[in-house]
Write a protein that binds this DNA or RNA. Structure first.
Lengths: 148, 148
DNA sequence: CCAAGTGGTCAAGCAGCTTGACCATATAGT
DNA sequence: ACTATATGGTCAAGCTGCTTGACCACTTGG
């Protein structure tokens, strides 16, 4: 594959990713969750299962813990998360989603599903599944990184 | 396709996009182009064919023209682009890549190709081409948007 | 039980964006 | 041809989300 083809693939991938992010964000806002930014979604993904510490979150997002702490401040202020004492470490605090935080997470899933349905209309359900499987196979590990 | 599957697809896509951006950026820097940020790549893509005005660039990047102008300042200061009088409009200025700007563009293509080759190793050449075609079909038009 | 390590916050600074105001040139209407 | 409006671009000020640096509270290991 030539360099220019690799560039075309890259550009398409980044355009799709950017569009998806925007669409999910708009969809979440349209469902009544104001003041939510794309970055919050990645925090939600880490907090959802069982909560997480600020340091955990920072590592997951690839930012300093101060930045992660600030982001948690914002989520708390907006009612999406709360800080609880950590059950096993008195230094740490466990950040968990509130009911509204869970609602917002579900709204994001719905918004994502809406976009993916459109892709299904363009490619067919089968190819969308193929796409998902291929992306899962090449997805890097490590911290989530902004696409630019 | 369930919402959670759509979310898995979305997360994988964004992870791949973030990783790709990072890898290209690192690759460009490793080839001797310092002080380059991912955002510059999208500017290069617009400037490369025949140059562009600041307003053009702003529309393409989805930012204000002031922000685009600032970005051009930076590219000029670093030797990647230059402002020329516009041949058909005395108000406008045509921003074009310098030789070094073209070199940097080629470096980005090489870096992208390197990553895509790795994907080829994981998926096979055939599936990478399929991936490219599918992404091109679902890629949105309009301005490039940061993935978050 | 003390030394080093780890979780977290406070404070200051900075980079990249925005909004608002403005000038120069182009274009359209009469 | 002349004026009114639109468009390309810049200057200036301000904001937001991040960083670095300093510090405290608690934990862990010799």
């Amino acid at each position: 594959m030539q360099n220019s083809e690799a560039m075309a693939l890259s550009a398409a991938l980044l355009a799709v990713a950017g569009g998806l992010t925007q669409r999910i964000n708009e969809g979440v806002i349209a469902r009544g969750f104001e003041g939510v930014r794309p970055a919050h979604g990645f925090a939600f993904a880490r907090l959802a299962p069982d909560g997480a510490t600020v340091t955990d979150l920072a590592a997951h997002l690839g930012v300093t813990k101060q930045a992660a702490s600030q982001l948690v401040d914002e989520l708390v202020r907006k009612g999406y998360a709360e800080r609880r004492p950590h059950p096993e470490d008195a230094r740490a605090r466990l950040v968990v989603l509130t009911g509204r935080g869970w609602d917002c997470t579900r709204a994001a899933e719905e918004a994502a599903a809406e976009v993916v349905r459109e892709w299904g209309g363009l490619l067919g359900e089968r190819d969308v599944r193929t796409l998902r499987d291929q992306l899962l196979r090449i997805a890097p590990h490590g911290p989530i990184r902004p696409a630019w």
